[in-house]
Design a protein around this nucleic acid. Structure first.
Length: 406
DNA sequence: AAGTCGGGGTT
DNA sequence: AACCCAGACTT
């Protein structure tokens, strides 16, 4: 029995490596064995499909060709290149880690486990991926693809959402690495999971290791891996203001930057608030009159007088744990902005606004009147990019559309 | 161990 | 519309 398992392991490693030679995709980070490229790609690939990552990878490497270039760039530029990719702490951690490598390791990505796993944003999977792919060191790199492939081939019924299961998989994956072939083997394992041993309807008939796959032999490949379900996201109802400037702010829109910690940290957005429960006490969006009043109050607290115009649109956005239902109201900045008695503050405010400079609200967010050209520098989450694009084409200044026009 | 942190895909 | 995919960090 144990002999059969051992034979299966040898068979698996041999056949998988053989298959990979002909099946491997030509991916940008596979064209050179550059540890910096491999690191960037592995961070981008966390929770993200290859097809989504490819254009981001090209643009990122174009702007930050070396680890040093990334380390020395303004954080704003790094976030802008990450715009739309999600999980923005990945970008901030990657840059922080690049600085770490520059200072502690002379700019060379380290090749030992303790140093690599000490880098910001680099956990057990990415440590194994960097050490094996970049340096061909025999370390396991266990991601979701690998757990799916191994759970099927060896018919492992443990719940892959449990933290103990990953440790089990790492032990197994380490045993399977053929002498001197860690880089190709680990990539082959993930490639099989991505191309053949897919979550739904796996393509078993084209699989190089079908012959000894226990799940396939037992006809249970469709119910493996065992995976407990995630909690559904909680709904949130939010109201947002798209404020068109007038007078000195003609052609500008009011935006603000989110705080440095938490959801969408340091990203720019339209001002918005959690909708207060409506008079009836029901959950959901308040009626439009109440919503416009609440937003007017928010703007007034920022020293901005604006009149509601109409409802621009509804938008939805799902995060892992929250589902936003957003209603966007158009506002028009009022000409005579401030009430009498605060003339000094008004002048000061006007001077700041005229220069286009940003100012801090009492809540710590940074408000700014921006032009379409400012969209080149400021990173917005996708949901707000969609809203701005819907508002008017000149605000569709995502990095993609900018570059195609250059 | 459970919750936080985006965005896109398939059915 | 409902469901699926899934690493690192924090608490």
């Amino acid at each position: 029995m144990q002999d059969k398992i051992e034979y299966s392991k040898a068979f698996f490693s041999r056949e998988l490596l053989e298959w990979y030679e002909s099946a491997k995709r030509d991916l940008p980070w596979r064209r050179h064995r550059n540890p910096y490229y491999i690191w960037v790609s592995e961070i981008m690939l966390q929770q993200t499909r290859v097809d989504t990552v490819i254009p981001y990878f090209h643009r990122f490497i174009e702007q930050f060709p070396t680890l040093q270039a990334l380390a020395e760039a303004p954080e704003e530029e790094v976030l802008k290149r990450w715009e739309g990719l999600g999980y923005y702490s990945r970008a901030r951690n990657l840059q922080a880690a690049a600085k770490q490598v520059l200072e502690q390791y002379g700019g060379v990505v380290p090749a030992d486990k303790a140093s690599v796993s000490g880098l910001k944003g680099v956990g057990p999977y990415t440590t194994g991926a960097i050490l094996s792919i970049a340096y061909n060191l025999p370390e396991p790199a266990v991601d979701g693809n690998v757990m799916r492939v191994l759970s099927r081939f060896f018919r492992i019924e443990e719940d892959i959402m449990k933290s103990g299961t990953r440790a089990l998989m790492e032990g197994l994956a380490a045993e399977l690495i053929p002498e001197g072939r860690a880089s190709d083997f680990n990539q082959a394992l993930m490639e099989l999971g991505a191309l053949v041993c897919t979550p739904k309807s796996p393509q078993c008939l084209t699989c190089p290791v079908m012959g000894r796959c226990l799940a396939r032999l037992d006809g249970v490949e469709d119910r493996l891996p065992v995976k407990s379900k995630a909690k559904p996201p909680r709904p949130e109802y939010r109201i947002a203001a798209l404020v068109e400037g007038c007078g000195g702010h003609d052609g500008r829109l009011l935006v603000r930057r989110r705080p440095a910690k938490g959801l969408l940290a340091k990203m720019w957005e339209l001002p918005h608030i959690l909708a207060a429960p409506s008079a009836g006490g029901g959950v959901g969006l308040p009626d439009d009159g109440q919503a416009m009043e609440q937003l007017s109050a928010l703007l007034a607290a920022e020293g901005i007088a604006a009149e509601p115009v109409d409802v621009l649109m509804d938008a939805e956005h799902t995060f892992s744990h929250i589902h936003w239902n957003l209603r966007v109201y158009r506002f028009r900045e009022a000409a005579a902005a401030l009430p009498p008695g605060v003339a000094g503050a008004a002048l000061e405010y006007a001077a700041v606004a005229e220069s286009g400079a940003a100012y801090e609200s009492s809540g710590g967010e940074e408000y700014r009147w921006i032009t379409p050209a400012d969209m080149r520098q400021l990173a917005f989450p996708n949901v707000f990019l969609r809203i701005l694009k819907h508002h008017a084409p000149e605000w569709d200044a995502t990095q993609t559309s900018l570059e195609s026009s250059i």
